[in-house]
Amino acid sequence: MKPHAHTLDVIKLNIALPNGRRLLRDVSLTLEPGEVRALVGESGAGKSMIGKSVLGILPPNVTITEGEILLEGQHLNMMTPATRRKTVAQSAALIPQDPLTALNPVRKIGPQIVDPLVRIQGWSRSDAEARALDLLDRVHIRDPKRVMGSYPHELSGGMRQRVLIAAAFAPSPRLIVADEPTTALDVTVQKQILRLIRELQQETGTAVLFVTHDMGVVAKISQKVTVLFAGKVMEDAPTPEVFTNPRHPYTRALIAATPSYADLDRPFSPVPAALIKDLHARIAQDDMLYTGGRR
């Protein structure tokens, strides 16, 4: 196998709560350089947990029980915490869900973008500042100098998300985890932010793991899709194929459940309860056979 062939490999990943309840069940996926993969599923399906496992920011009570995560060919869960942190910071970044809570309220915008570049990536301050200004310009912020000197509360939610996107792309990461980056925003702003992420992604060739519950977003931004249910991969396929020829009944139900603005008269069809019950029964069966990495 060529080294660095994939930007990200997640192999048979299992994470669990202290009581043994699994939140991810044998999840595998790969991300090629420059590829956008959407992770879809309902809330609680574990889609955010995959990104958090990669970035090393799982909640303190959740642990990886089994499986491998390779970032640019490097085994993350064999590293010491300090090495892991540095490796992740060198190659990956996060666009968070809620721009209102993701910026430190008592620090100006400028240092929040510049400091990691200087202190972690080892850039000179002038390089880092130039980079920050350039990126703020590229996320279509009109007066980057002024914004650098502003506090978060002086900016709107959409502006703050732009700032966070600029900060994520600033160190030229190979992988960006976008954790429902448009969910907390107004519908009108959502489209702009989505377009912006796609624009920058295409310019830089960064691979993106895009977590969302919105099949509409999936269609717009991704090349590959992983559909999750209860922490288990239901379907993994190229995006066009998922929409034209969904193999798994759950994927079909999910697409059918997506509301369409073009056709408001179409009746809303939720994922059938019988299907969910059936899926849960199968997962329970799996769990009975699962030994949690122990024999």
Partner: peptide, 26 residues
């Protein structure tokens, strides 16, 4: 627990740095 401290961890700051730089003033 807040998002901006999580983000600082992702950006590579150690836990002590996160406490002193991001959390203390707040």
């Amino acid at each position: 627990h807040l998002d901006y401290t999580t983000l600082a961890r992702v950006r590579g700051f150690s836990e002590t740095a996160v406490i002193l730089r991001e959390a203390l003033r707040n």
